[in-house]
Design a protein around this nucleic acid. Structure first.
Length: 367
RNA sequence: AGAACCUGAACUAA
């Protein structure tokens, strides 16, 4: 049981819940009984893949095996139920425990936010006697994600201690709401604090640089990453590619892109869109071909870049081909962006009747 | 003895 649990734990901690679930299934097939640890990780795994029903089954299994609900299992259950918006079950589990820790309340807060229940989150926060930095961070990030930046900032300013999570949550809040200047301003303030940015912080900062066209800050961040040896993973690499591309430094974007050992579809998309944005339509199209050759499956964003590139080089037929292939081969239902690209593509080449027909064929209301 | 709960992240048309 120990070996199985270690494997399952490893997969969950390395963010591969599918593999953890597979191992758990195999473990049970071998007749090994799950224990508190494996069940805890299964709750986590099903929470990660948003599998509510399976999560409930694990809860049932815990009860069936007569295992005692320790604090970890208890908190994981509260977290899972509240994340799925099943506040009734969450509160039921919550009420059954003689002792709820700060983490239990924190789990409820983040659950409320993920269901959009701002008032609920606020109420729990207000009623808490002991709060830790995670409590405050959960409030900052919860408000931020819902675009309630004033509220987030208020909490951020009020909190007694801030860690790198606090700063990152607040900066990404601004960045994701398109308020790049405020994100960068806060990043400047962060440098006056005693908390250093990590690679997650930098992803949001670079994203803000890309939006604002702040190439100088972006370059500074790049140098900082190298100098301080921040973990350069796919996220950070992609943000760098995107920042350079959006700021018009196609050469640097390509250089970072080529040097990245691991790329995913986001990385390719950032490079393809960047090329097409700056008039390198042909290069964008050949990069798209290279992506498929590398067995990276394009997603809906990839096709926005490709269709855009087709528009720039006036390749109407090729654009239509990609559009149809997206639907038929990849089972992606076109979004309003794709229809926008197609109308643009047809319109610019003077095929106005076809463009009109395209608009008529849209399943959603044209904007 | 040793496993561990809650908070931050990138690509998107006109």
């Amino acid at each position: 049981a120990y070996a199985w649990t270690t494997m399952i734990r490893g997969f969950v901690l390395s963010k591969s819940p599918e593999k953890a679930i597979e191992f758990f299934t195999r473990m049970k097939a071998q007749g090994v009984n799950p224990n508190n640890f494996s069940l805890l990780f299964m709750l986590k795994a099903f929470t990660m893949v948003l599998a509510y029903k399976e999560g409930r089954l694990i809860h049932g299994l815990i009860l069936k095996l007569g295992l005692e609900l320790d604090l970890f299992l208890h908190n994981a259950l509260v977290h899972m139920y509240s994340l799925f918006g099943d506040m009734k079950s969450a509160h039921q589990v919550f009420g059954e425990m003689p002792m709820n820790t700060i983490a239990t309340y924190n789990a409820l807060i983040s659950g409320c936010f993920s269901c959009g229940d701002v008032m609920g989150a606020r109420k729990i926060f207000d009623e808490m006697i002991d709060r830790n930095v995670v409590t405050w961070n959960a409030m900052v990030s919860g408000y931020s994600k819902l675009g309630l930046l004033k509220e987030a900032r208020f909490i951020f300013e009020e909190m007694p201690i801030r860690d790198v999570f606090s700063w990152s949550a607040m900066i990404s809040g601004y960045s994701q709401s398109g308020r790049a200047i405020e994100a960068l301003a806060l990043f400047q303030k962060m440098q006056l604090s005693n908390i250093g940015p990590d690679s997650v912080t930098m992803v949001s900062v670079l994203s803000a640089c890309a939006t604002a066209g702040a190439l100088d800050v972006g370059k500074w961040v790049h140098a900082y990453i190298d100098k301080n040896e921040l973990r350069c993973d796919v996220f950070l690499g992609t943000s760098l590619v995107d920042m350079y591309a959006k700021c018009g430094c196609i050469d640097m974007a390509l250089r970072v892109f080529r040097e990245m050992p691991h790329k995913n579809v986001f990385t390719w998309n950032a490079m393809i869109s960047g090329l097409s944005l700056h008039g390198h339509g042909e290069d964008a199209l050949s990069l798209f071909a290279a992506m498929e050759k590398a067995h990276v499956i394009p997603n809906e964003v990839s096709f926005v870049g490709v269709l855009c590139a087709c528009t720039h080089v006036g390749r109407v037929e090729e654009g239509c081909k990609h559009f149809n292939r997206m639907i038929q081969e990849l089972n992606i239902s076109p979004k309003i962006e794709h229809y926008g690209c197609m109308v643009d593509l047809l319109g610019r080449s003077g095929r106005l009747e076809e463009a009109r027909e395209f608009i008529k064929s849209m399943p959603m209301a044209p904007n």
